[in-house]
Write a protein that binds this DNA or RNA. Structure first.
Lengths: 246, 246
DNA sequence: TTAGTGCGTATGTGTGGACAAACTGTTGAC
DNA sequence: GTCAACAGTTTGTCCACACATACGCACTAA
């Protein structure tokens, strides 16, 4: 038996119709109203039920297929994916992640400098000659437990950063508030073992495992705004993601 | 000056028109014909140049925006992203990755078993009661250099696996050849340090850093086909990806 | 000089229709 | 009884059109 949708569509809302449908179906899947593995009515029928055109309905379903929540097969139909799906790895900061998880992250600024960039950083960020960088190192903890040691470089023509500001909130939040719209980031995840310096700060033993992450973030004007090198205690942090076949 | 496109469109090809455009633009960007940061003509004009409708043109550009190669701004136009963009982290095996990189991966099967699943594995794979698993451990090397130690479980109702087959090619290749269409995978990346067993096999020192990866893969019918726990030498392997803000 | 207004331009959203291609189950021939 | 051809269903692709909305710039008025 194919499942119908019962989603309120508000045509006066500023939220696009297809996105209202996306939110509605996602809510039904995550709440269990649409069971894993169940089959949906065909596109034409669903569009008619919600008084939408088929292209609009399809656009909504396209997004859900990309997100990995639905699976389509020509000549057969559309199904809800059986396994639970995490949200796609997002372009967010550790601070936001922890905050959303109900944790209380605290930040200690270990070093803070503002000036011209070293050559390798200037190259990584593709900096014009007259643009400098903020360079700072932070220790991020949850409760009393240190979690991450983070070194970052931010070009100084996108926002004004202060040591005080970095203590108060996440770097990404500050940059977003300053009008930076992040678009994408190149990221590399690896592993290393703690040296004495890292071990002392992270309150772990030298030689214990650390997750390493290097990231360079790009804004909507195509500038490389920020690059950083982070290490995380492996016993407290790992990267989870859902990969979707295209 | 806004850039035009010069892409051959073959309307008799089985490849959809919008995908031909995607391939064409991507090729122009990667070859440098379209320079990073350069602006494209507007959608209407580009569609006209290629004798396509605007929706088709937009669908192509949508994909490139999602892939992080283009950036659009309403009222302004479409630009090529300045920084170089890696391909999105794909649902592929280490074997494929190495082969594409021109390497010659070799595989040693350390253990191979076929039978009923342990309870935690049965739960992870959501196995029906009468389905068993293949359980095997492999050592993957490039040249003489060991790179990864991989333990996997595969449900036995999707394909027939043999020790010999696993020596010859990658697990994903075997499963694909057997008609399994992978759709998505949940994956977790972390770090650990090598114990004596791992160190000996990977020809490194106990206590050296290893990248860990756990993955469960889902096929297009929604079944959890495979799960595995891998460790990689951190000095030889890391995970690279491009995150795209949506 | 400067702040605000308006207009042109480009992308964003939504509709309707047409035909193609793939999969499934059934029918019919041998 | 087996297998191939066929028809029905459903998603995939493509087009033409209309209107909404955001951005940037030039012009205007205080």
């Amino acid at each position: 038996m194919a499942a119908s949708l019962n989603i309120p569509i508000d045509r006066s809302s500023p939220i696009p119709l297809y996105h209202q449908v996306v939110q509605g179906i996602e809510a039904m899947i995550r709440s269990g109203t649409l069971e894993p593995g169940s089959r949906l009515e065909n596109e034409i029928e669903l569009a008619a039920q919600l008084n939408l055109s088929r292209p609009t309905m399809r656009k909504a379903m396209d997004e859900l297929v990309r997100a990995g929540l639905l699976v389509r097969k020509r000549g057969v139909g559309t199904q809800v994916v059986a396994s639970q799906v995490r949200r796609h790895l997002e372009l967010s900061s550790l601070f936001d992640d922890l905050s959303r998880g109900g944790k209380q992250p605290t930040t200690k600024v270990l070093a803070f400098r503002h000036g011209p960039a070293e050559r390798d950083i200037a190259e990584t960020l593709q900096l014009p000659p007259d643009v400098g960088v903020y360079h700072f190192t932070r220790l991020r903890s949850v409760g009393e437990k240190p979690l991450a040691l983070m070194e970052n470089w931010v070009r100084d023509d996108v926002a004004e950063l202060t040591e005080e500001g970095l203590r108060q909130s996440g770097m990404y939040q500050i940059l977003r508030d300053a009008g930076v719209n992040f678009r994408l980031a190149n990221q590399r995840i690896g592993a290393t073992v703690a040296d004495e310096y890292q071990a002392e700060l992270l309150e772990t033993a030298p030689g214990s495992a650390l997750v390493t992450m290097e990231r360079t973030a790009v804004d909507d004007t195509g500038r490389n705004v920020e690059t950083g090198r982070h290490v995380y205690r492996a016993d407290s942090y790992s990267f989870e993601m859902t990969l979707v076949q295209r």
